[in-house]
Amino acid sequence: MEVRVVNVRKEFDRFPALHDVSLDIKSGELIALLGPSGSGKTTLLRLIAGLERPTKGAIFFGEDDASHRSIQERNVGFVFQHYALFRHMTVADNIGFGLKVRHGAARPPAQEIRRRASELLDLVQLSGLEKRYPAQLSGGQRQRVALARAMAIEPKVLLLDEPFGALDAQVRRELRRWLREIHDRTGHTTVFVTHDQEEALELADRVVVMSQGRIEQVGSADEIYDTPNSPFVYSFIGESSSLPVKVENGEVWIADRPIGLQAPHAASGEAVLYFRPHDVDLLDGCSGCIAGTLAASRRVAGTRRVELEIGGERQRVEIELPVDHPAAQKSRVAFRPRRWKLFPAA
């Protein structure tokens, strides 16, 4: 099922949580809503589900305007952050709940509901736990039961709110791979919310980066990481370093020296240079480069991070060096970013 969010605005007590957000989700796609807390990602998910109503704008399920449909009518599978499993029901009853509450002819016989529950438990690799209660399951198992319960109603769209947020790192990685497999097998259009960029970039077909109630950028993991379109995305996704610079006649300057970067299309004036700390060329001599005094050096796993002080204003910037690189022993290091981007000074 294709989902379109069109110019949606949401206010809580006049406080805007989402400003004019639009998003097209293709059928069968796995989409991540990524952002810091307060960015509006959960609000957007709840609006798609029908747990909230938009203040303005519309949400389409296929050609159908679903904005004013209730959550029951929308037929979405929602997996809650803390699972919201019914604690007084067994695993099988939890999974069968969505079928049990159907009316009349739509409700399958009890035996059929049990069979469906067992089938779904197989799918989430928890066969044999039908009679357990949620309290008797581990966090990862509860997560799987919650997913099975959401899928039991054959939803048009599967929505997951921080699906791995409450789990420890090991289980998280496992479940991440497993969710991808389930998605590929069942082909549900799936939207999940996360604040973990690694999760979003690894798992999703497309990532929606959100900040302060707005969508900053939508794209594949490669697009988001390699060509961030705003300072926010640059600094939120992956490591980044930034330096205040000046653009004159298509050349980038720091203080009174050009640094050897050409920006023919940039407007002259103040700007901020963004680059990845690991994506730099180290230089020996310096004519047209960024040179700085070594201020600090840390060993981080397989690389060495060094902090440099640049120019008279001693701007601090971080770059990464190979562990045994001789530059780390020197007092002055010169480099030039390989890939970089200029944004107008704020």
């Binding site: 747990l51 209730s70 959550i71 029951q72 599978g77 929602f78 809650f80 919201a84 509450v101």
Partner: peptide, 16 residues
């Protein structure tokens, strides 16, 4: 409200 929201999302009406 979490459990109630879950129930509604699974298609239950208010009374259920």
């Amino acid at each position: 409200n979490g459990d109630e929201e879950a129930a509604l999302s699974l298609g239950a009406n208010g009374w259920q």
